[in-house]
Design a protein around this nucleic acid. Structure first.
Lengths: 397, 397
DNA sequence: GGTACTTGGTATGAGCTTTTAACCAAGTAC
DNA sequence: GTACTTGGTTAAAAGCTCATACCAAGTACC
């Protein structure tokens, strides 16, 4: 449930077996259709070991056998795939304005999605609403007969996942909330893994974990909505890990300074990223009333010069932030999500343009950094929380 | 020699034994004087396993037994310490203006240090000079009878450690140099581990690895000299890892933008950090001739208003960079090294002051970020390279 | 001083996991 | 139909940690 608090933990034979099972499962996830022989080559394990562990995984219904691979002069191998039909992962993203719930397969494909408007309220009330909706989902025909591996929850603020504890969610008015402790008693039927994380961290993890093809060395997720957050995931060939700071916290990239002497931010400093590109900055610059969404308010007004100029400037600031991230961490991939991506090209073209124009040639002799803008990131964080559940389940006995 | 290229590597019994040996060794390194019984508690291994592995480590002379611990009503335990008397780690930092060589113990304590002025030249010539000096060190009475575990080399530019290959060192004029391949044939007597890394990454790793007391969750090293570089190390309770970007490269934090529309940088952009705080920026602002060192040139002039103002402004920019790092990654510790720290309070007081004044209260409800300025970072990168050698040796058969 | 008790460390057999090697299965080439 | 190649399984062997029992060396107390 919680992480290992010990500084340097030894391992026994069961640890070794879990390690190898995880390696095999990740190999199949990353390359669906591989055969046992392929796995043996890729993991460095022997045919015998792979055979035994695959049998176990087939029996647990984590893997399924597929068709025969065509052979080139020998017995054809039996292809293996993740078995997406027997289990379900639950993820919840409790945002400032809405709750997003997802139930997805081991391959990250959504089975059910729920998006509810929900004004900020007390933790207890939010937990109550969530529990009712989750129970509703669990009763749905689509997933009723699946085995639930656990539930991951994300919140919009710094989280210490080891406690687990939400430290602070300014936009919800919450502080030091052990949110899972409120939710668990309401959902005793969920016996799998429970975990809590920051929204951007979970999204970053999910984008990495369910990344199609070869996963990058590291990945940054930039969450652009009311505020600006980020998550960093590094995978050193093994299970990817979220890079966290002090006490498991993560930074608040929205409060990095881009424009010294600029506008005052609610954090007390001047010229933070959030004074230039966040939802509330755009809202303030264009006098959008609080009851209206930024995207809905601006779609009809995109041709107004004032709106176009504001979004272009915000986009350039976003580009500068991307550039700084690139020069600080050089991640092979930066994924942008959050409600602001709904503003489309008016915001994003200036951002990507700025980035491309100013990316220094000092570093990237070859390969480029890929910047991927999500069309719809409504369920990205929730799916990321589900991914974290799966990663934990893979490593569990 | 090279990292594991395989995506998800399985492990066998010998892997498990190495894992546990590493856990025990790290425990003793982190808490010198522990007993076998303490180790069993800390690592979660049984007394029997700990006893057997400790015996092996004593035999290999990685550990030594110390005095008896006073007991509280039972047999007193035998304390264990790293054995710093039998092995030696070699580290080389090939900088733009000088070469720094170090030989140190398993505890990171220096045995020999060499600092040579060396103008930029060809990779081959540099390798030749280094080989001669390393051989000289190896013949020294202090380390002649020790067993050498390997050699780590750092270079001032992006390095892909897996190849290993220096991608680009603008200040040396080198590009795509497999530097170890030049050095290895000249030093056949060094049979241990060879590795190559970026200077800031190695320094960050070393500061983490030889960190006294409980190591932080992560650590950022900021290298401030001619250019500005950084390294990020994250230790998730196991062996710490350097967080790298695309192709093993690391970003160039000196080219993050702090002042949009500011001075032009040699990278082509405007307002980079390096236009504000780097050695060459200060040199340009105060007309320091290239043949003179920045620190030496400015020490006698610190009372001049122009110098004081320039350094105060540079310091504030450095403070802003620290703030942005803090808000991006929230590392519990930021270590500052590099020749610019030689400018002392004139630069650093404004930097730390700016940081403290602007650090937003949003995040740090408790614990603070620690910023540590190294008095003398001459051999920090070289020692870090030696630390990387040790970390690799610990995990090797 | 002797005994009971507590804690540190070692030795031995059991249990589990991977490996080795031999074997069977199922295709192609000729 | 036979030789050959590759995929996968099985049984014995090797290796590691663990549980248990045992010995070692101190304190507390009578």
């Amino acid at each position: 449930m919680t992480g290992t608090p010990r500084p340097h933990h030894g391992g026994n034979l069961s640890f070794l077996k879990r390690h190898n099972r995880s390696a095999i499962l990740e190999t199949v996830r990353r390359s669906p259709g591989v055969t046992r022989a392929d796995i043996a080559v890729l993991t460095g394990l022997t045919k015998a070991t792979v055979g035994a562990i695959v049998q176990d995984l087939l029996h647990r219904e984590w893997l399924r056998e597929g068709e025969l691979r065509q052979s080139g002069g020998g017995r054809p191998g039996r292809s293996l795939h993740p078995d997406a039909s027997r289990h379900v992962l639950l993820g919840v993203d409790a945002g400032v304005k809405s709750l997003r719930l997802i139930a997805c397969t081991l391959a990250g494909e959504p089975l059910l999605q729920r998006h509810l408007e929900q004004a900020p309220t007390t933790p207890e009330e939010t937990a109550g609403v969530l529990a009712a909706r989750i129970r509703e989902m669990l009763a749905d025909e689509t997933i009723r007969h699946r085995h639930c591996l656990g539930l991951g929850v994300t919140l919009p603020g710094p989280v210490a996942p080891d406690q687990p504890l939400l430290r602070l969610a300014p936009n919800l008015g919450w502080r030091d909330i052990p949110f899972l402790e409120l939710l668990k008693p309401l959902l005793p039927e969920i016996t799998g893994h429970w975990l809590l994380d920051n929204e951007a961290n979970a999204a970053a993890f999910g984008e990495y974990y369910f990344h199609p093809g070869v996963p990058p060395e590291s990945l940054v997720y930039l969450s652009a909505s009311t505020g600006i957050g980020s998550g960093l995931v590094a995978g050193d060939g093994q299970m990817p890990t979220v890079v966290r700071g002090r006490g498991g916290l993560v930074g608040e990239i929205g409060h990095t300074i881009l424009q010294p002497g600029g506008l005052y931010c609610h954090c007390g400093n001047r010229g933070c990223v959030e004074t230039l590109v966040s939802g509330w900055a755009i809202r303030a610059a264009l006098n959008i009333p609080p009851e209206q969404g930024v995207t809905e308010a601006l779609w009809p007004r995109l041709s107004e010069p004032e709106v176009a100029l504001t979004l272009r400037r915000a986009g350039e600031a976003l580009g500068m932030l991307l550039l700084n991230l690139h020069h600080t961490l050089n991640p092979p991939e930066i994924v942008i999500g959050g409600s602001l991506t709904g503003l489309g090209d008016a915001l994003l073209v200036p951002a990507l343009d700025y980035f491309e124009r100013h990316r220094s040639g000092l570093l990237n002799t070859d390969g480029q950094v890929a910047i991927r803008v999500l069309d719809d990131s409504t369920f990205t964080a929730a799916r990321g929380a589900a991914a974290e559940v799966m990663a934990r389940a893979v490593g569990a006995p």
